[in-house]
């Protein structure tokens, strides 16, 4: 392994950026590919597939073996609102392999008793979420119903390249939200990224069922996301 490749790979990992160390087996040659870098040909397809699955593995091309060492940050769900839906979503997300954290400034909601063992912050999103808080491996779920709490993190999410943005609310509530986001200078294209009404349409009725719909929606967004350079650039613009 090239020392420089090791340094580059560790740098990407520290920055929560997905990267692949591509090694030519038996040759001692390797290079680091960051998510969004262009790799041509069949190797490029293998690279894209490896980024999507997050799984390391061997690849053979013209009799040469390659090992793709995939390093992706753990996907995480940032939930705005320590409500019923979040109480159900937290354990389910953990089971599915997603990190989860919950932010709600209302201290009556954000209590450790209601969210045992869950990363919980009883702060305003403005305080809890700094610049770059949401990365390409983050999902933002806003479920307080309160524009004073939900709007700021939604705007942050729409400006970021996070892989999922969802907001709870009826079509009427969402229409009003869209107006506010437009006033805040967010483009229609960006606003269209919001999954609203939140969750896959499975007819969910109870908070627990809505949590299932939300988690399925997030999994779908994560596993089917586009990883081409163009999409990356669009997300980060």
């Amino acid at each position: 392994m090239e020392p420089n490749s090791l340094v580059k790979l560790n740098e990407a990992r520290r920055e929560r950026q997905a990267a692949i160390l591509l090694s030519e087996i038996g040759k001692g040659r390797d290079r680091v590919i960051r998510e969004g870098d262009t790799v041509a040909g069949p190797l490029g397809e293998a690279v894209a597939k490896a980024f999507r699955s997050g799984k390391s593995g061997m690849f053979e091309l013209d009799g040469q073996e390659f090992f793709l060492n995939v390093q992706v940050p753990a996907p995480r769900i940032v939930v705005i609102g320590a409500v019923h839906i979040s109480q159900a979503l937290a354990p389910m997300a953990k089971i599915a392999g997603y990190d989860i954290e919950i932010i709600d400034p209302r201290t009556a909601f954000a209590t450790p008793e209601r969210f045992e063992g869950v990363a919980l912050r009883a702060d305003w999103p403005e305080e809890a979420m700094g610049d770059g808080y949401l990365d390409a491996y983050s999902a933002l779920v806003a479920v307080t119903h309160d524009p004073k709490i939900d709007d700021y993190p939604l705007i942050q999410a729409l400006k970021s390249n996070c892989f999922y943005v969802g907001a709870l609310g009826s079509r009427k509530t969402h229409a009003k939200r869209v107006e506010r986001l437009k006033e805040a200078g967010i483009s229609d294209e960006r606003i269209a990224r919001i999954s609203a009404p939140i969750g896959l349409d499975i007819g969910a009725a109870s908070p627990q069922e809505i949590a299932v719909a939300v988690l399925a929606d997030i999994i779908q967004a994560f596993r089917k996301r586009e990883l081409s350079a163009a999409e990356q650039a669009k997300g980060a613009a």
Binding site: S56, G57, N69
Partner: peptide
Amino acid sequence: ELQVAQDWMREGRNLAIATVVE
């Protein structure tokens, strides 16, 4: 392990990295 490898390299140690590939 990958950070350990980098730290050891900085200390001037010679090392090998073994990886489960299949």
